[in-house]
Every structure is written in C-alpha cells, then in structure tokens.
Amino acid sequence: MKRIVLPLLSFFVLGCGDDPLPKPKAYLRLEYPEALYEKASIPLPFSFEKNKLTESIGSVKTSNDAIGIDVKYPSLKATIYLTYKKVEKDNLNNLLRDAQNLTQKHTIKADEISSNFFENKEEKVYGMLYEIGGDAASQSQFYVTDSINHFVRGSLYFYTKPNYDSIYPAAEYLKKDIKRIMESIEWKN
C-alpha cells in the first residue's frame, strides 16, 4: 500500500504549482509609411493627387460612356476603383441614385454606414464619402461631381475576405487617400 500511496501523494504535491495566469492582450501594430502625394499623370477629363505608395495607376478602361481607373496598393492588397462619367441631359439624378444604391447594397453585411458631405466651392467639386463599418465587401464609397459636366464615383476593395477587425488599420490609412483624391480633383474643360 505504501508503494502506491507514496508515489500518488508525491504526484499530487509536486503537480500543484502556481495557478496559471492569462496571457496579456496583444494588439497587432501596423505602421504605414507617411503618405506622400503626387499628381496622377494620366489623360483624363480631371486630375487628382495619388499616394506615391501606389504601384501605378492601373489600366484606364474606356467604354462608350465611362472611364475606369484602378488606383492599386499592392502592399496593402487593395484597390481604389474610380469611374468617370460625363454628366449629360437629365442623367445627374440617375448617376447620384446609382452611386447611393451601390453603397446601400453593403447594408446586408455592414454594421453601420456613415456619410460625410464634401464641398470645394473654389474648384466646383461636391460629393459624399460613405464609410462602411463591419464585414462589408467595401469599406469606403464616394462620389464627386461639378453637377454640370463631370461625375466620378469611387470605391475601396481589399483582395481578401472581408474581416473588419483585420483590415481596419489599412482601411483607415486608405480613407485618408480617398479624402485626398476628393480634395485634389480639378476638372478639365
């Protein structure tokens, strides 16, 4: 009996140690380079400034009524898609409605959608920036127009399954670039 009790007793005495402690919370720290901007040198009916972090402006795709521009961020695995359309007779309301409807399609997965009005009277640029919270496919959507001749719609997409917690730092960084695009747009006549 001693042969069984003594090893068993020593196992329980030696097996009890300090209580386990939970690991402290750790947060992913992502640091992005300071944004440096330059004018995009592509032949468009408007000009804008882009972050030098962009690899280049992707292909300019033209169709009979639209021009598509891809502002690519390979290091962030993201692209800001811009679409330019000329404002013609009575199509401004349709362009605005389409831009708003594309944003509202994200309500299925979005936790919230906030809108911020943008106005630059000097350059005649007016628009709206939508910030989309949650696991939606796009984290930012926007449009700008002069209400007479020009209309640009833009959206931010990442090359990954949407997980808001993971892409939040990159989305915040790129939101500043989107604001810079909106602020720096100059229409060409």
Rank of each mutant, 00 (worst) to 15 (best):
S166D: 11
N189E: 15
K179W: 08
L9P: 03
I185R: 03
L92G: 05
H150Y: 08
Y81P: 02
K25N: 07
S10C: 14
T145I: 03
D70W: 05
K39I: 11
E38C: 02
G133I: 07
N64L: 11
K109L: 11
I67Q: 08
V125T: 13
E31D: 14
Y130E: 09
S138A: 09
I185H: 02
A78V: 02
N64Y: 09
S184V: 05
K179L: 14
G17E: 11
I67N: 04
I69Q: 00
S10K: 07
C16V: 15
L156W: 07
N149V: 02
L28G: 00
I148D: 10
S140E: 08
I167L: 10
D65Y: 10
A40G: 02
V152I: 15
L96C: 02
I148N: 10
F118H: 14
I67L: 08
S75Q: 14
S10T: 14
A110H: 08
K86T: 11
E172M: 13
F12A: 14
N116P: 01
I69S: 00
D19R: 14
K50W: 01
N91E: 05
H106F: 10
Y157G: 02
D70F: 10
S115I: 10
K175G: 08
H106Y: 09
K72W: 00
D90W: 01
S75C: 02
Y168M: 11
M182W: 03
K85Y: 04
K176N: 12
E88W: 01
V13N: 03
K39M: 08
C16M: 13
Y157D: 07
G133M: 11
L102T: 05
E186M: 06
N91H: 05
Y81C: 01
Y37T: 01
E123Q: 15
E88T: 14
K176V: 14
E31R: 11
K175R: 15
P33C: 02
W187T: 06
S75N: 13
K86W: 04
S114I: 13
Y164D: 12
Y143P: 05
S47L: 05
